[in-house]
């Protein structure tokens, strides 16, 4: 019994369905995955609890949604070394231990890691002397994930529900928002924004968890199959995201969205502002020791 924490029709959920669920079921091997659906099965913020209690066996969820239960997971989007290195240097196992301990879950996959986030704006942003965007005077719709960077860039975070975003944008309640590098077109917002701030920051961290008790009850054969497909999915999702990101940019170009591109030192400065802001937020939630440990493992400052 599996669930995705985003709607099953969401671009990101489809990547999981295509490269994991469908592959497993097509193999007709030791396990079959019964995909129950998206957040209509359990709301995003209750899905981890459902997995922990054994009401779900497999859960695909953006790591950011789990931080109410597992605060360390907030750091997962701050890795900038790539999945191969994460697997190789023990970071993956480190997080696996955390999920086992705090969510009774076996950590099966860390996927879609090549996609990140952009800031989208309806008005052209000002630039500082160093060539970094300056959001002074702009109201940005922000949730937990974007608030640190928006504040660091002098923008005013505005809390409005996601359903109010299109109208808020059209009516000037907000001037922009942050969004993943894929999926803008699928929610139809490309006509409401005019500028995309590049480069992308952070990295998506969508994770696949399996209920620990269930995992232990599976046959070796079944576990091998799941792990093998999960590894392949991690790799395939990288290409998938790159392809979709390009398609989305093409669609946005067609809709007249211009890129505000920072390069060289300006880009580096923008990124370090973004990452440092979020690391500080992580620090506030899990303390200095854990933050330094995680940062040392998964983040390379230039």
């Amino acid at each position: 019994r599996a669930q995705t924490a985003l709607p099953t029709q969401h671009t990101l959920s489809k990547s999981f369905t295509k490269h994991f669920v469908d592959v497993i079921n097509a193999e007709d091997g030791a396990v079959q995955v019964n995909m129950l659906g998206g957040p209509e099965v359990n709301p995003q913020d209750r899905a981890v609890a459902a997995l922990e209690r054994g009401l779900l066996d497999i859960l695909w969820i953006p790591a950011a949604f789990t931080t109410g239960t597992i605060p360390e997971a907030q750091a997962m989007m701050l890795q900038n070394i790539g999945i191969d290195e994460l697997r190789a240097n023990g970071s993956y196992d480190h997080f696996a231990n955390i999920f086992a301990e705090k969510a009774n879950a076996h950590f099966l996959a860390w996927a879609e890691t090549s996609a990140g986030y952009y800031l989208y704006l309806a008005t052209e942003p000002a630039m500082t002397e160093d060539g970094v965007v300056d959001l002074t005077g702009l109201s940005m719709r922000s949730t937990g994930a974007y608030r640190p960077i928006i504040e660091a860039l002098n923008g005013s975070p505005v809390a409005i529900p996601s359903g109010d975003v299109p109208q808020g944008l059209d009516r000037g309640v907000i001037n922009g928002f942050g969004w993943p590098t894929v999926g803008l077109e699928s929610i139809g917002l490309q006509d409401s924004v005019s500028y995309r701030v590049e480069p992308q920051f952070y990295n998506l961290a969508n994770i696949v968890l399996v209920n620990q008790d269930k995992w232990e009850r599976l046959s070796d054969e079944a576990r091998d199959q799941l792990s093998r497909v999960a590894l392949a999915y991690e790799q395939l999702s990288i290409d998938e995201m790159n392809m979709m990101g390009e398609a989305d940019i093409a669609a946005a170009d067609a809709a007249g969205v211009q890129a505000v591109r920072m390069e060289g030192d300006a880009a580096a400065s923008y990124l370090s502002t973004a990452f440092d802001a979020m690391w500080n937020s992580v620090r506030g939630n899990v303390g200095d020791d854990v933050t330094d440990e995680l940062r040392g493992m998964i983040y390379k400052a230039d």
């Binding site: 409005i160 109010d164 109208q167 808020g168 059209d170 009516r171 309640v173």
Partner: peptide, 10 residues
Amino acid sequence: LILLGVATPT
């Protein structure tokens, strides 16, 4: 107020 962009529908 919605149309003027002062307040969201909610």
